[in-house]
Design a protein around this nucleic acid. Structure first.
Lengths: 215, 215
DNA sequence: ATGTGATATTTTGTATTCAGAATTCATAGT
DNA sequence: ACTATGAATTCTGAATACAAAATATCACAT
């Protein structure tokens, strides 16, 4: 059994993202490094390293002399992030092996159909959605692109708990995922990529109204 | 006169990128933190913060217990980065104000035509190219996208000195920039975005052979 | 009561120190 | 001669210490 040996900064980063998923932190609030470090049981050094990483991903903001704070959410930024992820995932699809895509298409379809079945809690839904997208991109050879997508999606995590509890978009989301899968099954990569983009843009427009409009 | 007050980590990051531009560091070599910190006249703490940022941008790699090193270059990664930037700049163009684009089109044309005139040193050429792209994206309202493009381009800087000294692609590059500008002048945004993508892909294919093939 | 300014406190940004892992070097054994 | 083993050294990762900036507190004048 290989024991886990990773830098603290990475573990801390993931813990903070997990807490963001749970909605533990309110967007826009300042971070007290000493307090947070104590709570996590680490020193300020690796904590700050994690904070700097998250700031680079747009999850946090930093101001000279004033430390870090959770980046405020806004409809504008949510749209921006969705557009970016849409373009990047479409590119990932374009640079995937078509044969592989056709091979995983049935599984994508199965996953998409499993979505609306259960009236599940948000966490489960999100896991399902992630699973679907991970599988979709599993044939992309552009490693830098995959890393980048992960990084940009980290910024989107801030919106997860804001948007939690809205069932309406789910069926639609599932339907669009099905459509992407079917187009892949049919081997029409171009249309699938376009459908994927549409999925992101439609999902974005459906959800954006739930984000508090920043005065 | 507002005196400069920015975190050391940012200044250090920029200094390191500038040195990469100058080809001071060979790709793949390890970084000795103490030595580099001493050379820069700072302590290891802000240096490490800069290194972590650069690692997040893909400029450096880090391995547990083994520190940081300049990420090795490869044809594969160069292609990956170019494809990403192509997609992102095209997206930026898509989400720009068409009126603004038409307004700056003449200036873009002028800049593009000024390219091959002078037999200039690499540095000057690069600055020109940057200027052209900055102007091109000046109408993009998607701030996150602009930040992301800057970040991905930081990774491309590692290839600057590898590719330095090749004149052949220049005319072609200029011609393609002209074409993009002309299409913008004509108001055909879709074709301009496609031409921009082609510019990146063509430029990539032209340059990729100069990158040493990693055994 | 309110605003202003001096002082105290908190918090960040940076430097230094410490512990442990990785590497190097030397030595012993085959 | 070559490999393996172990000590010595170097370096990273993390904790702690320190200095300066920002914020809060309070006294005092208006």
């Amino acid at each position: 059994m290989p024991i886990e040996r990773r830098p603290l900064r990475e573990q801390i980063r993931e813990e903070l993202l997990a807490r963001i998923d749970r909605g533990d932190f309110a967007a826009g609030t300042d971070i007290n490094e000493a307090a947070l470090a104590a709570e996590l049981g680490v020193s300020r050094t690796p904590l700050r390293e994690a904070l700097i990483t998250l700031a680079g991903e747009g999850v946090l903001e930093s101001n000279q002399g004033r430390g870090f704070r959770f980046a405020p959410v806004s409809r504008k930024e949510f749209r921006e992030l969705c557009e970016i992820v849409a373009a990047l995932e479409a590119l990932a699809l374009d640079s995937s092996d078509p044969a592989h895509l056709r091979r995983i298409a049935p599984e994508l379809l199965r996953l998409a159909r499993g979505f609306p079945d259960r009236i599940a809690e948000q966490q489960v839904i999100e896991r399902h959605d992630d699973e679907w997208h991970d599988l979709l991109l599993s044939g992309c050879r552009n490693e830098r692109l995959l890393d980048l997508i992960t990084s940009v999606k980290a910024g989107l995590r801030r919106y997860a708990h804001v948007l939690a509890g809205d069932d309406t978009p789910l069926e639609r989301e599932a339907a669009e995922h099905c459509q992407v899968a079917e187009l892949l099954l049919a081997g029409d990569l171009g249309k699938a990529a376009q459908a994927l983009r549409d999925n992101w843009v439609n999902g974005m427009e459906r959800m954006v109204s739930r984000i508090p409009s920043t005065g």
